[in-house]
Design a protein around this nucleic acid. Structure first.
Lengths: 329, 329
DNA sequence: CTATATTGCTTAATCGTATAAGCTCTAGTG
DNA sequence: CACTAGAGCTTATACGATTAAGCAATATAG
């Protein structure tokens, strides 16, 4: 800036005023032109570190994930966060911790040293967490997770409503005996979707036969295959199944084929996740629910920045999962 | 720092020396203890912006992607880059541009204003690019892409070798008529793997019947399904197929089943990508090649930082794709 | 024709840190 | 006992910006 000033024959302060385009400051057009010309000529580029030390704001937002590889979900959350940040001319400082507590603490410490304006703490799947203490020292939003005491703002998918919506998609097509292939792990997704499933049955006066619920661990295609085989080998088998996620639905497809049944004529299937690479690729295309990862990422950053959506105190925000229709129902 | 100094009864410079643990500087143990105590008491945390303005290094690395959502690959690359950065106590500044040229330019401008020590420019799939001009103004590495004139360092998968390895995996199990379900799009992955396929056939004195090569566009399950149907309906059909990627292999599975054939007895199948959610989930498990996304991300950052792997001048680095064995051959 | 307002700058202080150079002791040397 | 070395600090400056306050010249008002 000093060099630019010298070249343009003005003071360094003037250069600052011109570069920042301060409307209120009164700098003549001729001078402005000279400054811009000199800046271009010298290839001047402002130094954000110096600026942020002076203005006391970093324009940085910390984003801590427990996993970034091995899941397409992380990408969607990052993109949502990044888009919201960009809209406010902020930029993301990304740290992946692989869930390692020690790494997590130093990561947050690093972010605080960078004077981030807030931290988004994201997990790969919806679950309760005990937030690292460092989070308390700045604005923080939990993304796809929450702390039991609700002392930090968080945004998660509305599992219950999604479970109800999915089940109702089956009911709407006339199904009366509806199976649930659930995840047996103790996660909010499993309990929430189960609750939604029950709500839907109750709302339509369908009784909830425990034999219709089959659980398996892991949420993998193999788990889905075996659970589906067990569920559908029963005497009075359901005409539709709601699967915990798309990989399990993929396994269910295999099981259904193995039993010589067809989708959707003998058995209707609905999955969960709208997994880009599974749902449209299955034959027939898999009806499923989409997790609002992008929207959650976006909401998290907007909330941090205290946008229009910012409410007072720590909020727990539930976001809807849209129903994605294809041919499996 | 000034506050800590006051509280510890020393000068600000002394605090700086103590905090940075400068071995050479001669500060008494008693003073060191007082400073640390005061720092802890006041919750002092260094300001990296101020530090970086003084030391003239930001410890920041820019990471620009054209896609981050809708692909698990981005995650692996980011993680590789991030791990390498962490090892050198650097931190990633992430910007996603969705391939939009204008966004790309402002993104790079922003990174330069942050005085990043280098920029990793990553694409979601292996392809040639014309790098944004801003990249020339700092250290830059192209990740999963390259510029035609090789004027920038880049790291990409070794498609040719991978194509040969995949084909040889089939040959090794005794297959003599090997089909190729390729992507008809003009991408290095398609031409490279085709070349590798031909090399392998030639090396084993197998003739390369053009009827064995079936192409389709998009690399989707549907494309694979149709290409496989066409390829396998021929009179003298192959006993094995090498598929351009895992989604196409997934489609091929459907086609093979439709034709009443079984895997691997009638037809052996090998895919490409080792897609977490497809390859292990198919019945039988899909043999495939793994793209070295993690390693490429890691290499890119290491190269930027001029680690042991840094060679002079712009390099084009090819990284191997390991073969992942399952049950489909 | 003087007093005041406005325009168009400049001067100087400040943000939080790093570090060269200097200063004051004390201990050791000849 | 004077002199030097080193230990253990402090002083002062710089990094690259922002911004309040001031100052000179010109325009406007009375």
């Amino acid at each position: 800036m000093k060099d630019v000033a010298r070249r343009a024959g003005v003071s360094q302060a003037t250069v600052s005023y011109v570069i920042n385009g301060s409307e209120d400051e009164r700098i003549g057009q001729a001078t402005r032109d000279r400054v811009f010309a000199a800046a271009r000529l010298l290839g001047y580029r402002p130094n954000v570190a110096a600026r942020s030390i002076r203005t006391q704001q970093s324009n940085l937002i910390g984003f801590v994930t427990d996993t970034v590889a091995s899941t397409p979900f992380a990408g969607a959350m990052i993109k949502g966060a990044q888009d919201a940040a960009r809209a406010a001319s902020k930029i993301l400082l990304l740290i992946n911790t692989e869930g390692h507590a020690e790494v997590e603490n130093t990561a947050i410490e690093t972010l605080l040293e960078h004077r981030v304006e807030g931290i988004v703490y994201a997990t790969m799947y919806h679950r309760p967490v005990v937030p690292p203490p460092g989070l308390r020292e700045t604005e923080a939003v939990l993304l796809d997770c929450y702390c039991e005491d609700r002392s930090l703002a968080s945004v998660v998918p509305d599992e219950v409503t999604a479970g109800r919506t999915a089940t109702e998609a089956l009911i709407r097509k006339g199904h009366r005996r509806i199976g649930l292939l659930n995840n047996s792990d103790d996660v909010p997704a499993a309990s929430g979707r189960l609750a939604g499933y029950r709500q839907a049955l109750a709302a339509h006066q369908l009784d909830s036969d425990p034999a219709l619920i089959q659980c398996a661990s892991g949420g993998t295609a193999r788990a889905g295959y075996e659970a589906a085989l067990a569920l559908l080998s029963q005497p009075d088998r359901p005409t539709a199944v709601f699967c915990f996620n798309d990989p399990m639905a993929m396994g269910a497809y295999d099981a259904i084929r193995k039993l010589g049944l067809t989708i959707p004529d003998d058995i209707a299937v609905i999955g969960f996740d709208n997994h880009e690479v599974i749902a449209p690729a299955l034959h027939p295309g898999l009806c499923t629910m989409q997790l609002p990862h992008y929207e959650m990422g976006q909401w998290a950053v907007r909330h941090l920045l205290g946008g229009p959506e910012s409410e007072p105190g720590p909020v727990q925000r539930l976001l809807d999962c849209p129903y994605i229709e294809r041919e499996s129902i």
